[in-house]
């Protein structure tokens, strides 16, 4: 369970988030939507303890990230980029993470297999394509077999096969009772993957509900999104 409660973030004079609240529940895929610069990544970073909130709280199973005893086994995260040093091989990257979590080396091979990166595991990360790098990020997130996944733009850079794989994979995980929060700006893709939708715009949550609730009377999630995030649109929650 992820609970974001009235999170405010200022950076210098800029107000990035002004009172963001929502939650992501077990057994469901929650899509976190918003235009570029709306505050999606900032929210996820605060949730993962990477950035500090000016006020408010972001809790993982009721505690802030910094207080998690075994972070990798609780929440797996794949944020922007690959999150890896380009001179290291994919396998070496996953191995140090496995060490940090006290996991055996065999688990590294398992996650490489899951994300389909076994054949490229011996290559330096710097030679990876965007899609391969994203798969490596997913592999890192899955190492500790966590109950919660937090993914920033997971389908970005993936080929159609990769997108299909991730959709099926996330649906299966949610079906087994795990919590998944993913951010995206690809509406069509998201509509086929998520159960719940949170839309953020200018650092404020403008819609929060199930896919059906947020889509409402609009013909698609995309229509609803533009109605909510285009200036002068009426506020609908």
């Amino acid at each position: 369970m992820l609970t974001i409660n009235n999170v405010v973030k200022h950076r210098g004079n800029q107000k990035i988030l002004s009172g963001v609240s929502f939650s992501a529940r077990p057994g469901r895929v929650t899509g976190f939507l918003g235009p570029n610069g709306a505050g999606k990544s900032s929210t996820l970073r605060i949730l993962l303890g990477l950035d500090r909130a000016t006020s408010g709280s972001a809790l993982i199973d009721g505690v802030p990230f910094a207080e998690l005893k075994n972070p990798l086994a609780t929440v797996g995260a794949a944020l922007d980029g690959f999150g890896a040093h380009r001179m290291r091989t994919g396998r070496a990257h996953l191995r140090w993470i496995a060490r940090a979590a006290g996991l055996p080396r065999s688990r590294v091979e398992e996650v490489l297999e899951i994300v389909g990166l076994t054949n490229a595991a011996g290559k330096r990360v710097g030679t990876y394509s965007l899609g391969m790098g994203r798969r490596l990020g997913m592999a890192a997130a899955l190492l500790g077999d966590p109950e919660i996944l937090v993914l920033d733009e997971p389908v970005n850079g993936l080929d159609p096969e990769g997108i299909r794989w991730i959709r099926t994979f996330l649906r299966e995980r949610a079906a087994s009772g795990k919590t998944i929060l993913l951010s995206s700006h690809l509406m069509g893709e998201l509509a086929e993957t998520v159960d719940d939708v949170v839309i953020i715009h200018h650092g404020k949550v403008v819609a929060d509900g199930t896919l059906e609730e947020v889509t409402g009377t609009h013909s698609s999630l995309e229509e609803a999104f533009f109605a909510l995030t285009t200036e002068h649109a009426g506020a609908v929650v």
């Binding site: 303890g49 980029g81 690959f82 380009r86």
Partner: peptide, 22 residues
């Protein structure tokens, strides 16, 4: 070390700090 912009411009510190909470 920042990754190339086409790969999303991330860096390893985000992974490090999500692997060790303190």
């Amino acid at each position: 070390l920042t990754e190339s912009s086409e790969s999303g411009g991330g860096n390893q510190i985000t992974t490090s700090l999500t692997a060790v909470s303190s």
